[in-house]
Design a protein around this nucleic acid. Sequence first.
DNA 1: CCGTACCTCCACCCGTGGGTCCAGGTGTGT
DNA 2: ACACACCTGGACCCACGGGTGGAGGTACGG
Lengths: 221, 221
Amino acid sequence: MSEPTDDSRRLRVIVADDQAAVREPLAAVLGMSEDIEVVAAAADGTEVLAAVAAAPADVVLMDLRMPVMDGIETTRRLSEEHPQIAVVVLTTFADDESILAALGAGARGYLTKNAGRQDIVRAIRAAAAGQAVLDREVQDRLLATARARPSATERVLPPDLTRREREVLTLIGQGLPNRAIAEKLFISEATVKSHINNLFAKAGIRDRPDAVRRAIAAGLA
Amino acid sequence: MSEPTDDSRRLRVIVADDQAAVREPLAAVLGMSEDIEVVAAAADGTEVLAAVAAAPADVVLMDLRMPVMDGIETTRRLSEEHPQIAVVVLTTFADDESILAALGAGARGYLTKNAGRQDIVRAIRAAAAGQAVLDREVQDRLLATARARPSATERVLPPDLTRREREVLTLIGQGLPNRAIAEKLFISEATVKSHINNLFAKAGIRDRPDAVRRAIAAGLA
DNA sequence: CCGTACCTCCACCCGTGGGTCCAGGTGTGT
DNA sequence: ACACACCTGGACCCACGGGTGGAGGTACGG
């Protein structure tokens, strides 16, 4: 968050979209904003990388579906090699996978193509300032995905497991072999096996892989 | 997303924070923006509700920690009774729980208190336009939480896994032993072991329990 | 005082898992 | 024609996992 947003210099923006019918008008309309300067237009990811190599830029307005190198991969490379450049995704698609992939790749904004000029300009300014702007729908989806996980310990495990058995199950769920569990609990490996046999019988667990799944499902791991 | 952002009318903003030392200067500095009008200042949630009942507003800039009625509860009520009013959270705390609670309650923005005046103004404008603005840190946390239990296939697996190897990993993740996997894929157990050896080497998986965890984390199971 | 639950540990058995090395068959691109 | 990736399969070895059947310890409640 930078208070003194440098208004003395226009934001250098690169527009990336494989469709010229989208790219050209978009670049033109963005250039009308007095604080934005479109320094390049790219039809695929390689052209974006070439553009940032040729001249400095602040923000890349990125389509996801592009030939040769798509927006996800391009975003990933940009955030690795040029972390100072902010990527704002502008795409038709707002499915969970695309959103997670894009933001996970380092995008600092995600707009759908029914965003207006004002919305896009605002997102560019925010991204340049280190903020993230998301369409309302995108935020809702992201939030829904985040909340989709079970918060509390589930009832998939019988309540009559002893404390020790729970501990052992937790460590199994973390992928530890019996020897490591024994060391961690300061007991012998034989004892670990005893606990395992008991808890397997109680909880109806077949084998170790099954135990891992149950432990994760129960929120122990 | 509304293209014709109505610039002919100033955005009516309510500032809610229990600390007068924060509330008053904030209201003053926001009022300096020509497109923003601070129509009320509130010290807790009940004052916010009273203010929106008394006069129309567009955006509420909301602190989370407030006496009587906190920001979460106030946000929840606002989004129920006045869904046209956008809530932007401005708080010191950026823990996962607060973020999820606030956005889940209907907040359309989440800023930490090291945001500058420009950042706050931008967030207010975006929220009024239906967009969501998050601090970079907040976005990262939200994304991390969303990816913790993903529905989509993750990037935790190397991309050079073959189709067969993915299938085998999926079945391992479901707890099946090699024999059952072999039957399910109509191949011999020896072949299953070959695939397992290859995919373990490629993905850096140590043993079967580890494979189960990775499969679940990757959303294959 | 005695039963019961829990934690601790040992010995034995053997099935599955996983590593290693190898090899034939197929399809694809050069 | 050739290399290469992939799927397929077999043989061998042995470590780890898991079942069985014990045994001795403490702590608690009837």
